[in-house]
Amino acid sequence: MKYELWKTGSSVLATFGLYSVLYRENKFYRFFEHIFLGLAAGWTLVVIWVEIEKDQWWGKMLGANNDAGTSMVQSGYWLYAFLVPIGVMGYFVFSKKHNWISKIPIGIVLGLYAGQQFQAWLQRYGPQISTSLKPILPTTFTSITVPDNPVPGEVYFTQALTNAISLFTLLSVVAYFLFSFNENNKLLNRLSTSGRWLLMIGFGAIFGTTVTMRFTLLIDRMHFVWIDFVRDMLLRR
C-alpha cells in the first residue's frame, strides 16, 4: 500500500508539473520535462531491443527465437549479419569526408517504403473510389423520404439527394487541390471555392468530434487526481 501511495503520488506530482507550463515555462516544468525525455530515451532503447532487434534480428540470426518450452529447433540465418555493417554506415553522417555513406541505409529504408506505396495506393484508394459510386437519381417516387419498411434495392429521393451532395462535395474538394490550372477558369474557380467551404464543414465536424474526446481525457485525469488519489488514497488511509 505504501508503494502504491508513493507511485500514485509521484504521478500526480508529475501531472501538475507538466500542467504548470500552462501558466508559463518554469523550473518545475523543466525538471519534469527532462525526466520525461530521459525516461523516454531509456525506454526507447529497451523497446528497440526487446520488440525489434531481439525478436526480428538477433533471434532469427541465431535461431533462438522459439518460446521457452517448445522443443522446436529453429535454424539461424547468417545473412541477417549483413545488416550490421549496413546499420554502421548510418554512423558515418558525422564524418566530413565519408558522410555520403550514411545515405545507403537511408536509401534502403526509403526504397522499401517507396516501393510499397504503389500497392498501398491501390489497396487504400480502390475501396474509397468504389464507395464513392452511389446512385444520384431516385428509382422510385412512392415516398420522398425513406419509409419505415423500405423496399430493398430502391433508391428514395432523399437518399439520392444525399448521394448527389456527397458526390459534389468530393469532386469540388478534389478540384480545390488542382494546382496547374489557370486561375481564370471560371467553372473551376467556382468549384474550388465551394470545395473550400465544404472542406470547412468537414473540418468543423472533425473539430466537434475531437473536442469531446480530449475533454474526456482531461476529466479522466482529474478523476485520477481527485478521486483515485486524494479521496480514495490520501483521505481514506
Binding site: I129, L133, L171
Partner: peptide, 10 residues
Amino acid sequence: LVLFGALDVT
C-alpha cells in the same frame, strides 16, 4: 472516374 462511375451506377 468517380463522376462517370456514379452516373453508370445511377
